[in-house]
Write a protein that binds this DNA or RNA. Structure first.
Length: 295
DNA sequence: CGATTCCCCTGATAGC
DNA sequence: TGCTATCAGGGGAATC
């Protein structure tokens, strides 16, 4: 599932591939993914706009367009932004078959779940694939979208140079909730999801269920470094593809092979050889070493 | 305030 | 074989 490193990989790709391109047409077959405005309206308004720059805000992909417009994509769990060329065939009243015209990894089944395509003025296309249809698309004036509830509350970015250890300690230590939950809260700190919260807590030797306000300053400092280090490493390796993440060319990332605890239940801890445990909290699962990570 | 539950959706997997 | 039930999971909303 795309978290900060995966989203950063997409943003970096897009900045190489689609800057300066004009959107010439829009196709969609799952209008519910487009939350704002209505799909038809988005189609009408976005045609002719030129892509100026792509940024990341938490796990959101921000595609800035001419005329001070902004297109936002949140990939949620199974969303993929892809650049390529596809052929669309109507196979029933509301059913379509999307086939990749290029070669390479995009031949995979990711094509079966493409629900939104932007035609670009160089013959390329920007496509949104999403098996679960949880992805979210927003479009409007830069001002309106940036101020919208979806983006306005998003907390500081752990990769931001201005986000200091002292800020992290301050915002975390006043929370009573379990530390894992706090790390997943996008309003407290943005970009971290299930994978990297497990990895960072393992590195910092903190049990995922420990109340955030019961963690010593020194441990929080370690956690701060752990988060930065693991995200940095994952960005370098272009993300984790344990689930189904792919970059804009359909290529997998390789952090998954280096992961320490995430989805490694009953495998042995790399530090102490204790079997890794998996426990549920709410609807999510936490993976950790019951020996190294103290409650 | 915090904690829990449901919902969105669909492929994979387990049980019968 | 083929059906049904359950689960995963980001994030928002509703409820306790």
């Amino acid at each position: 599932m795309p978290e900060l490193p995966e989203v950063q990989t997409i943003v970096d790709d897009l900045n190489k591939k689609i800057i300066g391109r004009k959107i010439t047409a829009v196709w969609f077959d799952a209008p519910k993914i487009i939350k704002k405005p209505k799909a038809r309206e988005l189609e009408k308004k976005i045609k002719g706009l030129k892509i100026s720059v792509v940024k990341r805000l938490g796990k959101n992909i921000l595609i800035y367009l001419s005329g001070d417009n902004l297109l936002v994509v949140h990939q949620k769990m199974t969303g993929h932004l892809l650049v390529g060329r596809w052929k669309i065939q109507k196979i029933a009243k509301t059913k379509f078959k999307v086939t990749n015209l290029g070669k390479g990894p995009l031949q995979e089944k990711v094509n079966d779940y493409i629900h939104l395509i932007f035609d670009l003025d160089n013959g390329q296309q920007l496509a949104l694939s999403d098996l679960r249809k949880f992805a979210k698309v927003l479009f409007g004036s830069k001002e309106e979208i940036e101020k919208s509830a979806d983006l306005a509350k998003i907390g500081p970015d752990p990769m931001d140079k201005n986000f200091k250890g002292s800020d992290f300690i301050k915002s975390i230590s006043r929370q009573k909730r379990k530390i894992k939950q706090v790390l997943l809260d996008q309003d407290v700190i943005s970009g971290i999801g299930n994978i990297y919260s497990d990895e960072a807590l393992f590195l910092a030797k903190i049990h995922p269920f420990r109340p955030a306000n019961k963690i010593a300053k020194k441990e929080l400092k370690n956690l701060y470094s752990a988060i930065k280090n693991v995200l940095k490493k994952a960005i370098k390796l272009r993300g984790t593809s344990i689930s189904d993440f792919r970059d804009t060319s359909g290529e997998a990332g390789s952090y998954g092979q280096r992961r320490l605890v995430y989805r490694k239940e009953s495998q042995l801890c790399g530090r102490c050889k204790t079997p890794i445990k998996r426990i549920k909290m709410g609807g999510r699962s936490a993976h950790f070493c019951p020996h190294c990570q103290k409650l």
